[in-house]
Amino acid sequence: MKGFSKWLLQLVVGFIGILLISGLPILIMGFQQGEFRWKEYGEHLVILFPLSDFLDANYGPHIGQYIIYSLEILFLALIVATGLAILFTILTMLCKERTRQRIKTVFFFLESLPDILIILLVQLTVIMIHKNTGIFVSKIAVTGGEKLYFLPVFCLMILPMIQLYRLSMLTFEAEERKMYVELAKSLGFKKLIILLVHIFRNAIISIFFQSKKTMWFMLSNLFILELMFNMPGIMLHLRDNISGEVFLITVCSFFLPVFLLYSFGEWYFVRRLNRGGAFE
């Protein structure tokens, strides 16, 4: 029960934090006139109550659609990125030490490419392919009501994939040095079997815990992606109707699902770990 109350505390404090942040722009809105608007800030803090009025005024069905579209892109990209990162990790782990070091250096520098350059290059490539061969791979911007999935997910997943790849390489290599791998090797198991069955199961927990940071990183990218592809998501909606209320809804719409997902994951993995006695 102690764990639950701690969880509830984190959730409530998180909410209060978001509420306080969402009012900040109102506070400094009067900057050009040289004043801080404390009174308006105070008024903003109580807009949530009563909750039903707040939702009626600011939460229409179209906002729900924006949120769902943004979350779809975000989670699709996360799933694809995780899958590919783990696949590449296992492939690299099968290589020799020297090759491994080289691949890691290349990925280190790839990781520092800015997201705008990647999106620009992808869009340019699509344009060039269309110009030269006439094959239309995908639309490079959303026009009208339809939704775009393939290209945004592709752009969004590249950088997180590289980050996750570096992370899982570190974890896998740390696991590889442990005794149970040595034992498995001496028993004559093949390298691939050891990787897939033994190391993978232990590494995935650590990767899950650290992937939260990648998630945060993706949120910033998602914003720029919606801007450059003109996608009807919640971030673009926020840019067009900038206000404390929309800001509050936007941040909560990411905070709640991700927070719930990771709390559940933590609870599940910690329980499994404790039952196995690995932490005792």
Partner: peptide
């Protein structure tokens, strides 16, 4: 530390660009 961290945690869910945009726009 737990209290401070749970105050700071939601900040991660605010994309830095949006936060900077909100704060810098009036300036």
């Amino acid at each position: 530390r737990l209290l401070i961290n749970s105050f700071i945690d939601p900040l991660h869910y605010v994309p830095m660009t949006i936060f900077a945009y909100l704060m810098l726009y009036p300036v």
